[in-house]
Design a protein around this nucleic acid. Structure first.
Length: 378
DNA sequence: CACACGTGGAG
DNA sequence: TCTCCAAGTGT
């Protein structure tokens, strides 16, 4: 596209590409953090780290990465594992489709490529859960290829360096940044160049109050020159989150087992376990609607009694206000109900619960159950 | 393109 | 409290 070419030409113009590369790489070689996934260039290890790091802080990822790599050290180990166990290692990390897609993609690599992560843009990008950023990260970091790896850090850094004011939430803008990186990437070390851009964004060129005073490339920065670095990058504001009032049922059968439900394989918190729960509307007693839901869905008769826990959980696009009730078990009938949900239901001993992957909101309820809701009852 | 998709930390 | 976010991808 000629227009994009012109825009790019305008941006790069008289930019000192070599000077920028030198300053950036020199800084990275001296200041890069010692992170678990930087121990080597193994493509599988790079891949796993990049998936975990999507929209997730480095400090959060580190312990998950360590545990995950200890249990699944190679493509084969992960390919041979059950998805349920993979989920258990992902429990609490969020964005669980990452775990599902990674597992599927690793199985594909094992079967189709004999366990060797492919090294072409087409093949890597075709893997589930691997988008333009992750593909570029794997190709450059693990294989040393001069491919752009444009994430939020890179867009923030380069929007300031080149004074780019396009909205970074647009896909088209990411492509502009990829074009820019293609022009300025250091071919002698694409791996370090891409990592350095991200590291700079994480440590120096941070969203608020960027540390321009100690920035190794401040001399190359047009936003800094104009004093407008704080107002970049331009990003459309997120919309408000929807609120759902939900009632949760704790139902213990006469044999001591509790009713759990495994969520559907797609959508919110896919494949994670939870206690039966339903959204309730209006000011009516939630217990009525909860009892009806449990019966119609699972064919389980119960009477919600005491409110034992009340808590909220905020997602990126949704907020749950949860009220959890201890219920009296009154038997089970063979109703039609929700056939799919019934298949995903299971009666579980409390000692076995730690083996089931829960979402954070329901893990808190499970923990409360283990502790007898001591705190809530006070 | 817009929106679904998690969570915990920082200012 | 509240707002924004952190190494994005799938639909």
């Amino acid at each position: 596209m000629a227009k994009q070419q012109e825009r790019q030409q305008d941006l790069i113009g008289s930019f000192d590409i070599e000077g920028f590369q030198d300053d950036l790489l020199y800084w990275f070689e001296r200041q890069q953090r010692d992170l678990p996934w930087r121990r080597d260039r193994d493509a599988y290890r790079v891949w796993v780290s990049e998936i975990m790091l999507q929209q997730t802080r480095v400090e959060t990822v580190i312990p998950y990465y360590e545990r995950f790599m200890e249990r699944f050290p190679t493509v084969r180990d992960l390919a041979e594992a059950d998805l349920e166990e993979v989920y258990k290692y992902w429990e609490g990390l969020g964005y669980y489709s990452r775990a599902r897609n990674l597992h599927a993609a690793v199985k594909e690599v094992q079967e189709k490529y004999g366990g060797v992560v492919p090294d072409t843009p087409e093949e890597v990008h075709a893997l589930k859960g691997v988008g333009p950023y992750t593909a570029g990260a794997i190709l450059s970091i693990a294989y040393g290829l001069p491919e752009p790896a444009v994430d939020g850090n890179v867009m923030r850094v380069l929007s300031r360096i080149f004074l780019i004011e396009e909205d970074i939430t647009k896909a088209k803008t990411r492509k502009l940044f990829e074009a820019v990186v293609h022009r300025i990437i250091a071919h002698r070390n694409p791996s370090f160049f891409n990592q350095a851009l991200m590291e700079l964004g994480a440590l120096i060129c941070i969203p608020r109050s960027p540390r321009c005073g100690i920035c190794p490339v401040a001399n190359h920065c047009r936003a800094r020159d104009k004093g407008i670095q704080e107002s970049l990058p331009v990003k459309k504001k997120a919309k408000q989150v929807r609120i759902e009032e939900r009632a949760v049922a704790l139902i213990q059968r006469n044999d001591g087992r509790w009713l759990l439900h495994k969520r559907p394989g797609t959508g919110l918190l896919a494949n994670l376990w939870e206690f039966p729960n339903t959204e309730y509307k209006g000011d009516a007693d939630p217990r009525e609607q909860l009892s009806t839901y449990v019966y119609q869905t699972f064919g389980v008769k119960c009477i919600p009694q005491e409110l034992v826990m009340e808590h909220s959980h905020v997602f990126s696009h949704l907020q749950w206000n949860l009220r959890t009730y201890i219920c009296a078990y009154k038997g089970q009938e063979d109703v039609e109900g929700d056939a799919e949900a019934k298949v995903r239901a299971s009666w579980v001993l409390i000692e076995e619960m730690p083996h089931y992957p829960f979402s954070v909101s329901h893990k808190k309820i499970a923990d409360g159950l283990h502790e007898g809701f001591q705190q809530s009852l006070l």
